[in-house]
Design a binder for these strands. Structure first.
Length: 287
DNA sequence: TTCCAGGGGTAGA
DNA sequence: TCTACCCATGGA
């Protein structure tokens, strides 16, 4: 199955744009530049998908996925932010000596899950913990709750599958700690209809409204909401976390202790591309 | 032991 | 609107 690609798209740069590719059900093979994922796909249940990009995007699977072409197209578009027009951001990068490399390399697309639900859950798993524990929590959820494909690989659970677990199970088996009620509240809210993700992530909303909308989700605060916005391709808000603070303090303030507001002010000139302005600096620093 | 990590919810001011 | 405090977990 093939899909057209926009010019300048790079699969490895998009995949490794941040840590998401280390969280199951993503599997990334750096050598062959192949991204794999196990997806719940309608009547097929859990199926393995393998994604490569040369001149176009190629998706292959051991199952007959042809009837699901439109659905796969929608999911890959979200996952790789294929709809995102980065020209205005790259234009700003070209104007700054410090960021020319960002435009030349085509950086700016972030790897996302194939659904807002999965991204929201994973963002909850990143809060107030180490990255190693986030990875472990995601592994536990996929291992203990995810549906198994014929290969043995497992998919990320659906809202219904997570809603059917319990607080005790998510704490004891998945080691979520106090995050358990947030994840459960999110899943159960979707199932009982009190949370409508389609309505909450209404693409017609202006960005500040969407930011407030995401903050209604359990366990999603200012950091999580800004992160979810970036995954919707909106970069007006910066997700301020300990990594942002330590990076900006070191790069722009000689290690001095300054307020979050002062740190965010550094990126004011980026307009609607503030988060990518910061994120691209982090990306350049990490090679 | 104590601290704290890619924060968020809540009560009280 | 702002601040202080609590929240599970596990590595340093």
């Amino acid at each position: 199955m093939h899909f057209a690609l926009t010019q300048g798209f790079s699969l490895p740069k998009t995949v490794t744009s941040h840590g998401w590719y280390r969280l199951p059900p993503f599997r990334w093979d750096e050598k062959s530049e192949t991204l794999s994922r196990t997806e719940l796909l309608g009547s097929l249940g859990a199926v393995d998908l393998t994604i490569r990009a040369r001149k176009r995007l190629t998706v292959s699977s051991p199952e007959n996925i042809a009837p699901f072409r439109d659905e796969i197209d929608r999911r890959l578009t979200r996952m790789l932010q294929l709809h995102l027009d980065l020209e205005a951001f790259h234009k700003q990068c070209r104007r700054r000596k410090s960021h020319r490399e960002v435009a030349e390399e085509g950086f700016g697309r972030l790897l996302c899950a194939t659904s807002l639900f999965e991204d929201a859950v994973k963002i909850i798993l990143t809060t107030n913990t180490t990255w190693g524990q986030t990875v472990r929590m995601a592994e536990n959820i996929v291992e203990h709750v995810g549906e198994k494909a014929p290969s043995g690989n497992k998919a990320f659970p659906s809202p219904a599958q997570l809603a059917a677990t319990s607080d005790g199970f998510l704490r004891e088996k998945c080691r979520l700690g106090y995050r358990a009620p947030y994840v459960l509240g999110l899943a159960r809210g979707i199932i009982d209809g009190t949370l409508d993700l389609g309505q909450i992530a209404d693409t017609e909303m202006d960005t500040p409204t969407l930011y407030k909308s995401f903050r209604q989700l359990p366990g999603i605060g200012p950091y999580g909401s800004a992160h979810l916005l970036a995954m919707e391709g909106r970069h007006d808000f910066i997700a301020v976390d300990t990594e942002f603070r330590s990076f900006v303090r070191g790069k722009h303030f000689n290690g001095r202790d300054v307020s979050d507001e002062q740190m965010q002010r550094i990126y004011r000139g980026w307009g609607r591309w503030k988060y990518l302005g910061y994120w691209s600096e982090l990306w350049m620093e990490n090679g």
